[in-house]
């Protein structure tokens, strides 16, 4: 049997213990890499399946959700009252403050800190980003290839952390125009927050509805909550 046939049987778990050992021993470097990739992809599908099961399971809790929803409603009503007083006191800063409350820089998954790994090998931009030094991170990212979508996305985060929403929006628009697939969902969230900062409430809600449509249960809830808060805030 050739490699391709054996590989298929191995992936499907159709080889017995002896055949598996023989097959793994026979692999060259490239074949070994191919098998590792296949195993990683199988693992990724398992995780994805478990994540989608989570959505089903959360629906088992419908009754509880209603109770929680009622409590949340009561809490929201109380918050609304407080918010109304707050808006009455400081009408202008409400939208920006709400957006800032819902903003936190996206975690660095591009070059996360690894155990036992040397920090020296890490991109200076991401080193600064991890240290929450967004000014230095932005400078370092500016020196990199601005065509890289991931870098552009992290620049958007830096700009928002540095309270530069208009520059951040320009970068987001650039990514949208080139139909970048990088970080689509988190980008939508940031777009909604910038629209909110600009008091473009309708645009913010449109972006949040798009976020809601593609998000998981938690993300949907997050969008719903913010839409509610915006509805309470708008004139």
């Amino acid at each position: 049997m050739n490699f391709e046939e054996n590989k298929d049987l191995f992936i499907r778990g159709a080889l017995n213990e002896e055949e598996t050992l023989k097959f793994l021993d026979s692999l060259d470097k490239a074949q070994k890499k191919e098998i590792e990739e296949a195993m990683e992809l199988s693992a990724a599908f398992q995780i994805k399946k478990a994540e989608s099961n989570l959505k089903k399971i959360q629906q088992y809790e419908s009754k509880k959700t209603k109770v929680v929803a009622f409590r949340a409603w009561a809490a929201a009503a109380a918050s609304l009252l407080l918010l109304a007083v707050f808006i009455w006191i400081s009408k202008d800063s409400g939208a920006e403050k709400l957006a800032n409350q819902h903003f936190s820089p996206y975690p660095n998954i591009a070059q996360p800190t690894m155990r036992n790994a040397s920090e020296a090998a890490k991109d200076p931009g991401f080193l600064a980003y991890d240290a929450k030094d967004y000014h230095s991170a932005l400078n370092a990212f500016n020196n990199k290839d601005s065509e890289l979508d991931t870098i552009a996305f992290y620049k958007v985060n830096c700009l928002l952390a540095l309270k530069e929403p208009q520059q951040a929006l320009a970068l987001l628009e650039m990514l949208n125009q080139k139909e970048s697939t990088a970080f689509i969902l988190p980008r939508k969230w940031l777009e909604a927050l910038i629209m909110l900062m600009n008091k473009e409430y309708d645009q913010a809600i449109i972006a949040l509805n798009q976020y809601f449509a593609s998000g998981n249960a938690i993300e949907k809830q997050k969008a719903k909550n913010l839409i509610k808060e915006i509805e309470q805030l708008r004139p």
Partner: peptide
Amino acid sequence: DPKELIFQHYTQEDGEEKKVLLKKML
């Protein structure tokens, strides 16, 4: 975060490098 908990369960034996790769695959 339940999604993160699920990820942790499936990657408990893996090194950081593989975890990053799996996140990218997802």
